[in-house]
């Protein structure tokens, strides 16, 4: 049933693209609302039919996975939720994948945020991933929620030398000295790996400048696609690898799944986003091509 549906939808989309091409060549203006509607339906169709692809991880993503994989049990992993709902579809899957991977490797998790909206998303991770999939882990011994602090890079500048000064207590107002996870942690430099996840300011770049470089802590940022190219110059010395956009997240989810079959059935939102993503990319690429064909034909006419 759905097979026929897919073909009909694809036929409609590509038929539509050809129509737009013909229209444009004739020199008629296509209203932008038609273009909008086009993108809407192409994406919605792909979501509706839930098309999924296999992903093979690139080296830059594999590096991150391998590093976390090779750390000895009980290593300290800090994840910073530096994003808001607007960036959520891209980077939230990364945060959850890192949390799953860390907990399955029995690492200790420290969760914090430099964005006010990040703390609410952290709560979602704790409620939906940690408490559901890892009922055995104990708050304070296996993971801790430090929550949000205002002050952007000012926060980082303090925690790189002294955690307690910035976080006298966790998000539940519990004194940090009574939390076992902090017995041998003085500063962020004591972490074994840090995952700054985000794409704005403050974000991964500030983490590299204020924590990664001064503290020589391995950094593996999870990035919104918009900023991913900007972080490449820090690879491979200042960051050990990076995840760029939903594609990076999908690659991580796929290695995680193939290495740990227990995650076969947990949701992998990034992987399931790649179907619609692909179709939308094709539509946009077609628009660029159509636009340029028209452009060159017009120019030729003008020159002739």
């Amino acid at each position: 049933m759905s097979g026929i549906g897919v073909y009909i939808s694809l036929f409609l989309i590509f038929g539509g693209l050809v129509t737009i091409l013909v229209y444009s060549i004739k020199g008629r203006d296509v209203d932008r609302r038609i273009i909008f509607a086009f993108v809407f339906f192409a994406t919605a169709t792909a979501i509706y039919y839930n098309i999924e692809f296999k992903e093979t991880p690139t080296t830059i993503v594999k590096n991150v996975f391998d590093r976390l994989e090779s750390l000895p049990e009980g290593s300290k992993v800090l994840i910073s939720f530096d994003f808001d709902p607007a960036m959520k579809p891209e980077v939230f899957p990364m945060a959850n994948a890192f949390v799953r991977h860390s907990l399955v490797k029995k690492h200790k998790l420290y969760l914090m945020s430099l964005w006010p909206q990040g703390q609410a998303l952290m709560t979602e991770t704790i409620e939906d991933v940690i408490k559901v999939e890892f009922p055995e882990v104990v708050y304070g011994e296996d993971y801790v929620m430090l929550g949000y602090k205002a002050g952007n890079e000012g926060v980082l500048n303090v925690i790189i030398t002294n955690f307690r000064k910035m976080y006298p207590s966790d998000a539940h107002n519990t004194n940090i000295d009574s939390i076992p996870l902090f017995d041998d942690v003085k500063s962020a430099a004591d972490m074994d790996i840090i995952f700054p996840i985000g794409g704005g300011k403050p974000g991964p770049k500030e983490w590299i400048l204020f924590v990664g470089d001064p503290g020589q802590v391995p950094m593996a940022p999870g990035l919104a696609a918009v900023v991913a190219p900007l972080i490449y110059p820090y690879y491979p010395r200042q960051v050990i690898g990076l995840l760029g956009g939903v594609k990076g997240a999908a690659e991580y989810e796929s290695v995680l799944r193939s290495k740990y079959p227990r995650f076969q059935d947990v949701p992998a939102p990034a992987l399931s986003m790649m179907g619609p993503q692909t179709l939308a990319h094709i539509v946009i690429l077609s628009f660029i091509v159509i636009g340029n064909i028209t452009f060159f034909m017009k120019r030729k006419k003008a020159n002739a």
């Binding site: 737009i20 932008r32 273009i35 909008f36 993108v39 946009i284 628009f287 660029i288 636009g291």
Partner: peptide, 12 residues
Amino acid sequence: AFYVASASYRAF
């Protein structure tokens, strides 16, 4: 996303 699509058709 919509604006990117329309810009790729009309401006790029």
